[in-house]
């Protein structure tokens, strides 16, 4: 990973030993950090201005520092995209992704049979599946216009994380905050991405609103380990 490999190695050990946490959600907490279920990042956006589709990207794992699980989707880890339509902060629709034998299988979007911390795979609502990619992206698109991808990608997050840790603990000798320009800790890092582009009509109507009154889906992602 470029010129900073050595530094990263040292930092990786330090991070695991002392509990230093990396944004956006990369290795953010002791119990999940560095595991195959560790969420690195989450994006949700319209692919082009005015599109009737939404793209969800979930990044699991990261090789931003050494010593972390990276490179293989875990068949015991179920990833869920939770979507609250009416603004009550409880999921009304769920999209699931789980790997089996080199393919990523998708289910939903459907109202889950239970909300909260435990889930089953929604096997009655298969959405499609795609071969897990190596370096080149392999994608599938269904007749309903849903596209799938799963595989390693560049970690698109950018953040001067090393300076951030110093910024969090200022002293009279070092109280200047961030450097401009800073150094992007994540340049050169990779992550295991799951991407789905789906027509909004399959998700449903948003009746909840955001802080400025626009109708929005309230969404969050979870990883869930087989018991």
């Amino acid at each position: 990973m470029k010129k900073t490999t050595k530094f990263f190695t040292g930092f990786g050990l330090l991070a695991l030993a002392t509990g230093i946490f990396v944004a956006a959600d990369h290795i953010d907490a002791p119990a999940s950090m560095g595991t195959t279920a560790d969420i690195a990042d989450y994006f949700a956006f319209e692919p082009t201005m005015g599109s009737d589709n939404t793209v969800f990207i979930v990044d699991l794992q990261s090789n931003v520092v050494d010593g972390l699980a990276y490179g293989t989707f875990d068949e015991d880890v179920l990833t869920e995209i939770n979507i609250d339509l009416d603004g009550d902060l409880t999921e009304d629709m769920v999209i699931q992704a789980i790997p089996r034998n080199g393919r990523m299988y998708f289910f939903g979007p459907v109202t889950p049979n239970q909300t909260g911390l435990n889930s089953q795979v929604l096997v009655d609502s298969p959405l499609g599946d795609v071969e897990i990619s190596a370096t080149s992206a392999i994608t599938e698109t269904t007749s309903e216009g849903v596209s799938f991808f799963a595989g390693p990608r560049q970690d698109p997050f950018f953040f001067d994380f090393f300076r951030f840790n110093e910024v969090l603990a200022p002293s009279p000798m070092d109280n200047s905050g961030f450097n401009v320009p800073g150094e992007d800790t994540f340049d050169g890092a990779n992550t295991m991405s799951i991407a789905i582009e789906i027509p909004n009509s399959m998700i449903g109507e948003a009746t909840g609103t955001n802080v400025i009154g626009l109708p929005v889906y309230k969404t969050w992602i979870t990883t869930n380990r087989k018991q």
């Binding site: 956006a24 907490a29 119990a31 969420i39 087989k226």
Partner: peptide, 24 residues
């Protein structure tokens, strides 16, 4: 086809970026 049986328990959560990291 594949076996998808079992119960899966939540281990990680994310909505907005960096919130748990910075403010936890």
């Amino acid at each position: 086809g594949p076996d998808f049986s079992g119960t899966f328990a939540q281990v990680d959560h994310m909505g907005r970026p960096g919130i748990n990291t910075v403010l936890g």
